[in-house]
């Protein structure tokens, strides 16, 4: 990672600002120069280094400028604007009016918001259950001498690269209460299946199952990479010490894989809390049925509610408040996860 290079170098040089007289940087730079390898005169080396630093830095900024500008204009600035609009009432054709915390007060008393938030949290929790599953798959695919691993890897990864819209269309048919394959299979073993995505009691589980199906491949690939990064000698040493397969898994594999597990967990939480397209289409909100799915209230996610309020009900200020709350929630959950990682993640 390139950022490591600058991070390591920065304390030594004091990162002099451009255009500053070169003399002022000397005391801070001395420490770095003293430890520099090679037979060059420390002062000359220092000068050369600084020259490179200036130039490198400007090149660096120039090269990231296009991406950085795009990020600022299309992502960061809208975030600031969204925050501003969450304190306003925004008519359908512009014309904002500052209304302070009114949107947030409405939100706290809006049962639809709390229901949507609850749905989203349940979905996220259920999708997290896919990580152990991905772990099992990764371990299985990592077994030496197993045949057809390439095929399995591809099969499990396929849902990840499939458009959520296509996934939703297919799963709607699989889940169809009258003619779906799932219910036909269940009836073969004597179980009378339900209307999975229009029954309020099953809708969240049915959608989360698709969520797991769509993410398990991605997590599996990451975990597989993590597994393959564990040196084989550790296992040899462990078996010499008399550790069985199970002991090896819990005492070696799991701790050494914990950084990857942490990464997949953080990413899954961030993505799941923002789930939109899959659920929107599964509930049939894009069809003439619209919001009349009897399980709509139990399926609707926070981003769906934001979309509904902002772009259909013409309450954009309120929509902005909804996403701002979601934004803060995601930040908080991510921060908590980073806090907790100290307890269970082992690096190296």
């Amino acid at each position: 990672m390139s950022s490591d290079v600058t991070a390591d170098a920065a304390p030594g040089t004091g990162a002099p600002a451009p255009g500053r007289p070169s003399g002022t940087g000397v005391p801070a730079g001395a420490a770095a120069a003293a430890t520099a390898p090679g037979g060059l005169d420390p002062a000359a080396l220092r000068r050369r280094e600084r020259r490179f630093r200036y130039r490198d830095k400007w090149w660096g900024y120039a090269l990231i400028a296009p991406a950085g500008l795009g990020l600022a204009v299309f992502y960061l600035w809208p975030v600031v604007q969204t925050l501003y609009y969450s304190f306003t009432e925004w008519g359908a054709f512009g014309g904002t009016e500052w209304i302070g915390l009114t949107n947030y007060r409405t939100l706290v008393g809006d049962p639809e918001f709390w229901q949507a938030l609850g749905n989203t949290v349940v979905y996220t929790a259920l999708v997290l259950l896919g990580i152990p599953l991905a772990m099992v798959l990764a371990v299985l695919l990592n077994v030496k001498g197993m045949r057809g691993t390439g095929i399995y890897r591809t099969l499990y990864f396929l849902p990840v690269v499939t458009m959520p819209a296509a996934v939703a269309v297919v799963w709607r048919w699989l889940y169809n209460g009258d003619v779906g394959i799932l219910n036909q299979a269940l009836s073969a073993i004597g179980i009378d299946g339900t209307f999975w995505v229009s029954d309020p009691t099953t809708v969240r589980f049915a959608i989360a199952a698709i969520g797991v199906w769509m993410t398990v491949g991605y997590n599996m690939i990451l975990l597989l990479a993590g597994l393959q990064g564990i040196p084989q000698d550790y296992y040899e040493a462990a078996s010499l010490d008399g550790a069985g397969r199970v002991r090896q898994f819990f005492s070696l594999t799991l701790p050494l894989l914990s950084p990857t597990l942490f990464f997949t967990t953080v990413l899954s939480v961030i993505q799941s809390l923002q789930v939109f397209d899959l659920v929107y289409l599964i509930l049939g909100a894009n069809t003439q049925a619209g919001l009349t799915n009897p399980a709509y209230a139990e399926g609707q996610t926070v981003v769906m509610l934001f979309f509904q309020k902002s772009f259909f009900d013409n309450q954009r200020g309120y929509g902005a408040a909804i996403v701002c709350v979601l934004f803060v929630l995601i930040m908080a959950l991510t921060a908590i996860q980073f806090r907790l990682q100290k307890r269970w993640v082992h690096y190296g």
């Binding site: 809208p78 975030v79 923002q274």
Partner: peptide, 13 residues
């Protein structure tokens, strides 16, 4: 997919 939220918020603007 991680960016969908921001994209949605930004798209109108």
């Amino acid at each position: 997919r991680r960016r969908t939220l921001l994209t949605a918020a930004a798209s109108a603007l």
